[in-house]
Design a protein around this nucleic acid. Sequence first.
DNA 1: ATGGGAGTGTAACTTTTGTTACTGCATAGC
DNA 2: GCTATGCAGTAACAAAAGTTACACTCCCAT
Lengths: 210, 210
Amino acid sequence: MLQELKENYGYLFEDELLHEINQVGILKEVEEGIIIIDIGQYIRLMPLLISGAIKILREDNDGDELLLYFLEKGDTCAMTLSCCLGDAKSEIRAITELDTKLIMIPIQKMEEWTAKYKSWRNFVFDSYHSRLLEMFTIIDSIAFMKMDERLLKYLRDKINVTKEDVIKNTHQEIAYELHTSRVVISRLLKTLENQGKIELHRNYIKIISL
Amino acid sequence: MLQELKENYGYLFEDELLHEINQVGILKEVEEGIIIIDIGQYIRLMPLLISGAIKILREDNDGDELLLYFLEKGDTCAMTLSCCLGDAKSEIRAITELDTKLIMIPIQKMEEWTAKYKSWRNFVFDSYHSRLLEMFTIIDSIAFMKMDERLLKYLRDKINVTKEDVIKNTHQEIAYELHTSRVVISRLLKTLENQGKIELHRNYIKIISL
DNA sequence: ATGGGAGTGTAACTTTTGTTACTGCATAGC
DNA sequence: GCTATGCAGTAACAAAAGTTACACTCCCAT
């Protein structure tokens, strides 16, 4: 695990901290599509991403979903940070988008390290900062953008995370994540296909150029 | 200033920290409607609210606005925290909603105190936490709620902040903050009036029961 | 091979929101 | 007093998004 730690977090943390993480952290490999954290759960472990990707979703009272953002290598979950320190319940759901490798850290260490290591403090604050910025872009897209633009952004974000030119999702799944209906997505995707930007197939979408 | 500090932050911070704040902080009184922080600005001072309220707005490329939330007594601005530590530009605009009293703290102290005072760390993390939660409620309202519900929430939030049963805003101003058009707001307000929930007047709205 | 379910395409329609245009009214400044 | 301006009310229409319905096709399981 130390090897993976050094590769992904070596430039951030000093050796002493890396060794502490190595001692208390638990390396976990989670396959795609697993719920790591659900809404209402208390959080006892904090994840550091090594590889793969996690999608973060919000849900309303009717069970309607909305995709917020993806976490990738080098990221951690600001929600988790928040919860650990405040002993609050999770407001979001986290699902592995790809097969994902992560290191789980007991939350007790959080406070200790925050006092002890400047690099850890910076990491925590940076995480908050980037998550806050991410939140702004989400708000921008739902407040200011129409569904066609949001769909484009969705497709772009998706290929950014998966590093493939194929998106393996049904129209229904996309509709859930953008909080709209399947028919609307089919309609807009068809327009994109007519513009030559994508190719529609059963269960997957081939990206030509966005 | 020390008096005001103790009243509003005494239960949070230890005496030593209160005295440090007292030494380096600058007490400022800002009247209603002043832009304290604007989008793209670098932030050199961090505000601690003593009284009054500040509204936080987001703007898109076309200059369209969206009200995010209000800061009140005991709050600070997570955006500022974020920026101070990351040396980044502000992504939001902050305008005094009421006459507001605040203590401005030079950002250099931020890091120092974060290392030195546990209570300060907790305060910073709590601020992040509550801002993050606030962001979720904003996302919820624009993603899941229709305009009539959003307007209701807006009116409720507003009287919560001002502690009055009268909202002194034109329909046009409300429309800006909810990012819609004046006609839409007039329409929905009229419906609320017909339901007996509000009374419409020129330049102000009287709240009967929400 | 066949029935059924899941995924997609599409039409027709409704609802919600946004736009344009015009009205009347209150008030401030003359 | 009169007028210009800003504010609010409302109608008529357009655009965007959501809904319902149904057809077709692929593919899996029996």
